[in-house]
């Protein structure tokens, strides 16, 4: 049976991808962030998954305002890299895992999560930057197949944090019932605190971010109990992306250990963080 071996929470700020694409990771501005990633990257390179399920949001690229699915899943063989308005990132095409996608879809719908299905999907920085955080030098091909799982975080009403955690729990169950012996990693992306527009643009709330970074491991229920208004007020209008971390957390289950985390301000207009958790339950059954 398939197993979730680890979960990675990471910001997906476009400029983090641009810093890698333009070889600026050693610049004074970016070095502290990338130094913070190093231990997690080294550990992940020793614990490679067959498939990564990447929970992210599209930013006005594959999905426009004509239709905005609350939760969606990609079921394609491959996903092209989107031109977001300034040319696509020069990174490999993203290979899908359509059999796993279809299995997850069936299981989630049976469990009451009525996912929108995407048979064609161009993936934007929300998905490709986290892949680059995992694997900075993919060469011609990413080291794993990908199942994109999309969440509406840009148009109110977004799903509640509680619903995200519940979806994660259903996702974990769906993964574990896939009959092939594959290793799966789950990525929760976005955040941390940031607000791009309005008089509060540039908002960073380190206290809230650090509380969240801790509680995501030990007390995700307390984070699921926060309202959408709480997230926007405390973490900014775009900080609400952090609800996507709860999907990753729900999928991991209860027996996890923290491998590494790092927190840095700023990545352009954003507080950026990474947190990596090993699924201890998977380790003992392997």
């Amino acid at each position: 049976m398939a197993e979730v071996i680890w979960g990675l929470a990471t910001s997906h700020v476009p400029s983090i991808g641009a810093a890698m694409d333009n070889h600026k990771t050693e610049d004074a501005y970016w070095k502290p962030l990338f130094d913070g990633y190093a231990p997690a990257r080294a550990w992940m390179a020793e614990h490679t998954p067959d498939v990564a399920i990447i929970v992210y949001n599209d930013h006005a690229n594959a999905i426009d305002l004509a239709m905005m699915p609350t939760f969606a899943i990609g079921t394609a063989d491959e996903y092209q890299v989107a031109d977001e308005g300034w040319g696509p990132r020069n990174v490999p095409v993203v290979k899908g895992a359509p059999e796993l996608s279809r299995h997850l879809l069936g299981s989630l719908v049976d469990d009451g999560f009525d996912m929108t299905v995407c048979q064609e999907l161009e993936v934007d920085h929300g998905l490709t930057v986290p892949l680059s955080v995992y694997c900075p030098e993919p060469g011609d091909e990413w080291p794993c197949a990908v199942v994109p799982l999309l969440v509406n975080v840009i148009q109110y009403p977004q799903p509640t944090a509680a619903r995200c955690l519940a979806l994660g729990e259903a996702l974990g169950k769906a993964i574990r019932s896939f009959p092939e012996n594959i290793k799966v990693a789950v990525f929760g992306t976005g955040g941390m605190s940031h607000q791009l527009a309005g008089a509060r643009a540039g908002l960073i709330n380190e206290d809230f971010d650090r509380m969240f970074l801790k509680a995501i491991e030990t007390d995700p229920e307390s984070l699921a109990a926060l309202s959408r208004e709480d997230y926007v007020r405390e973490a900014g209008s775009e900080g609400i992306e952090m609800i996507m971390w709860l999907i990753m957390r729900g999928a991991l289950g209860s027996e996890i250990s923290r491998v590494h985390d790092t927190y840095h301000v700023p990545a352009s207009n954003t507080a950026a963080a990474l947190a990596l958790f090993e699924n201890v339950a998977a380790k003992t059954t392997a």
Binding site: A60, D64, L65, A66, M68, I154, Q155, Y156, P157, Q195, A197, G198, A199, R200, S227, R228, E229, V232, R233, G236, S237
Partner: peptide
């Protein structure tokens, strides 16, 4: 919700600014 100094883009905004956002997109 209303949060001072913050735009919370919602479905009503989508409706009134649909042409604008569609063009920008």
């Amino acid at each position: 919700p209303k949060v001072p100094g913050t735009y919370i883009f919602d479905v009503a905004d989508n409706g009134r600014a649909y042409a604008l956002n569609r063009m920008l997109g």
